[in-house]
Computed example of a mutant assay.
Amino acid sequence: MARMHARRRGKSGSSRPMISENPEWVPLSKEEIEEIVVKMGKDGVLSAKIGLVLRDQHSVPDVKLATGKTITQILKENNVAPNIPDDLVALMRTAINLQNHLNANKKDVANKRGMQITESKIRRLVKYYKRNGVLPADWQYSIANAELLIE
């Protein structure tokens, strides 16, 4: 089946190797990994960035295999998780940048379409997060609220 906002089909990217336990060559213990995750979470680093830093600088291939919990679960347990999920924040940043561009360039029709696509992705994601209880039921998206929440 084709993608919703693109004309291509299929599944791209690589897949992870099928391993079920933490490799023995990982230098950090479970507690040290959780400590690093909480410290970076308090600094306001996104969970995807925390995973990249752990992989590249600390040789931890997978936090879930090493600790038994995801980065988001560790952040929630220590009350450092952000109020709004990371993927929604990234989409709202994109929408803010597009809105600023469209305010400066009124006749840019291609980016106006990009703004519509981005906002529809945001609306679908908000609907999903409301349904699963991540966002409150009365939470509403608008570009003005996004600017206040993000910046």
Rank of each mutant, 00 (worst) to 15 (best):
M1A: 10
M1D: 08
A2Q: 06
A2T: 05
M4K: 15
M4R: 15
H5C: 01
A6N: 13
R7I: 12
R8G: 08
R9W: 14
R9F: 14
K11N: 06
S14I: 07
S14E: 07
S14T: 01
S15C: 11
R16F: 13
R16I: 04
P17K: 05
M18N: 11
I19C: 02
E21Q: 13
N22V: 08
W25I: 05
P27R: 00
L28F: 12
S29N: 13
K30I: 03
K30V: 07
E32A: 08
I33T: 03
I33D: 05
E34I: 04
E34M: 14
E35N: 10
E35K: 08
V37N: 01
V37G: 03
V38T: 02
K39S: 11
K39N: 07
M40A: 08
K42L: 13
D43S: 12
V45H: 10
V45W: 12
L46I: 02
L46T: 07
S47C: 05
K49A: 09
I50S: 02
V53C: 05
V53P: 00
Q57K: 08
P61T: 00
D62T: 01
D62W: 04
D62G: 07
D62E: 03
V63I: 10
V63R: 02
K64T: 10
L65W: 10
L65M: 07
T67S: 03
T67E: 05
K69E: 11
T70L: 04
T72C: 05
T72A: 09
Q73C: 03
I74K: 06
K76A: 10
K76T: 01
K76G: 01
N78Y: 09
V80G: 01
A81R: 04
A81D: 04
A81T: 00
P82M: 02
P82S: 06
N83M: 11
N83H: 08
P85W: 00
D86V: 03
D87G: 07
V89D: 03
L91K: 14
L91H: 08
T94A: 12
A95L: 08
I96R: 04
Q99D: 15
Q99T: 07
L102T: 04
A104P: 00
A104R: 12
N105G: 01
N105L: 05
K106P: 14
K107M: 06
D108V: 00
D108L: 01
V109D: 06
V109E: 11
A110T: 09
A110K: 14
A110D: 14
N111R: 11
G114F: 13
G114S: 14
G114L: 14
M115I: 02
M115R: 11
Q116C: 03
E119M: 08
E119C: 09
E119T: 01
K121A: 07
K121I: 01
R123H: 13
L125V: 02
V126M: 07
K127H: 15
K127Q: 13
Y129F: 15
K130L: 09
K130Y: 12
K130Q: 14
N132F: 15
V134N: 03
V134L: 09
P136N: 04
W139M: 01
W139Q: 00
W139F: 15
W139K: 00
Q140P: 00
Q140A: 06
Q140D: 12
Q140W: 01
Y141N: 04
Y141F: 15
Y141E: 04
Y141T: 01
S142D: 10
S142T: 15
I143N: 08
I143H: 09
I143T: 05
L148T: 04
L149K: 10
I150S: 02
